[in-house]
Computed example of a mutant assay.
Amino acid sequence: MPGTLGIIGWIIIGGLAGWIASKVMKTDAEQGVLLNIIVGIVGAFIGGFLLSLLGVDTDGAGLIFTFLTAIAGACLLIFGVKALTGGRSRV
């Protein structure tokens, strides 16, 4: 996520990305606002890391690209946690 967003931007984008990812992955009833924020922010880091491994330059990519990266990373995070716990997780 770009450094120009600041902490409030990270929280807002993370919360929205985590919420959308939880809807997509059908875990919304299990997650609260705080967990959505955490999943979204961690998802943004996961998505950014994976894109950098693929050679995609994410620096200065823009707010929409950052948001979509956070959603994709959050979905991967939820999928991974569900796979490791057999679907019994709170994420």
Rank of each mutant, 00 (worst) to 15 (best):
G73R: 01
G47S: 04
V91K: 02
A70P: 00
V42D: 04
G55R: 03
T4K: 12
G80Y: 05
S52L: 09
D59H: 05
T27R: 15
G18V: 07
G55S: 06
L68S: 07
A61D: 09
I12G: 07
I20L: 15
L84C: 11
I38F: 11
G43E: 00
G9L: 03
A44W: 03
I13C: 12
I46S: 02
N36W: 05
D28F: 00
T27F: 03
F45R: 12
A72W: 01
V56E: 11
L54S: 10
G43C: 03
Q31W: 00
G18F: 01
G86H: 04
E30T: 06
I78Y: 00
A61S: 14
T66D: 14
V33F: 12
I41Y: 05
V91Q: 11
T66W: 03
G18S: 13
G60V: 04
L77S: 03
W19I: 12
I12R: 06
I12S: 07
I7R: 12
A74Y: 00
G18R: 07
G62R: 13
V39R: 01
K82P: 00
V39D: 11
N36L: 08
G9F: 01
W10Q: 10
A29Q: 15
G47T: 06
E30M: 07
G15R: 11
D57S: 13
I78F: 00
L68K: 12
F67Y: 12
T69D: 04
T85S: 14
K26R: 15
G87T: 09
I41C: 13
G14E: 02
I8K: 10
R88G: 09
V24W: 09
G3I: 08
T4V: 11
V91H: 10
S22N: 12
S89G: 09
G47A: 04
G60M: 08
M25F: 03
